[in-house]
Amino acid sequence: MSRPVLLMTLRQRWLATLLSGLAVVLVVLMTGALFPSLGDAIGKLELPEGVSELLGGADYGSLTGWMRTEVGAVYGPLVIAAAAITGISSQLAGEEESGILGLLLAHPVSRRSLLLAKAAGVAISVVAIAIMTWLGLIAGVAIAGGGIGVGKLAALAAHLALFGLACGALALAIAAGTGRRAVANAVAAGIAVLGYLLNGFAPLVSGLDWTKYLTFFYYYTDGDPLSTGVDLAHLAILAAAAVALTVVSVVLFRDRDLRA
């Protein structure tokens, strides 16, 4: 892995990383502040099963349910997946489109070490957002009056981090294979959203129930980390997917003609 490329990637991404992290933290703090007044008033919503599944149970009556629905089910994964996907797409495909990659690779750096350094830089950014989310959750829960352990919050952050890494690795493979930023963004985001919907609705259709196992979202959310802590098997599956997609990226990138 090329150290200069890694450092340059971090340098290019730190502001976007910080803003994404702050975006989560602000919402988590607001969510925490609103719980005492709103949570009890709303209680548990009676929603159709699929919809309530999409919203992480829609149980607004407990702080765990409130946080799971407000942050865990949609907003957290949305922000972290967006940061991972747009981050790697711009670093790899975006730089190829602008011609910077052609310049860098005219230097004595192998394609594999460049790709791995870019991937590592964006991975660090994703983990940083997850850590900021965790710290935000600790503060948000404290504002709401407490009730969820720091460990459980860390479990949610860990699931978020690996979900983000898997989404980013998917975008990495598409960026490495096509060299087109818009394609990498659109396809990876599309697959992530499709996974979200499949995980929510597939269980309602008996023949399609198995498709939820194909989604990153299932392994992110099914173990309910906020209530039960980390699900190591699910985290391992997300990690394995991220590693496998990274290997695929290296192979796709190795022999492809770059746009000069």
Binding site: S2, R3, P4, V5, M8, Q12, S98, G99, I100, G102, L103, L104, A106, H107, P108, V109, A260
Partner: peptide, 28 residues
């Protein structure tokens, strides 16, 4: 080999010195 591409693209936010420093690091 030294190479100058026809359409020379760099990181727009870096200064020339920073960009050259980066490229120099890529050469060790």
């Amino acid at each position: 080999v030294g190479y100058l591409p026809g359409d020379f693209a760099m990181y727009p936010r870096l200064t020339g010195a920073e960009m050259l420093g980066h490229l120099a690091e890529l050469r060790g």
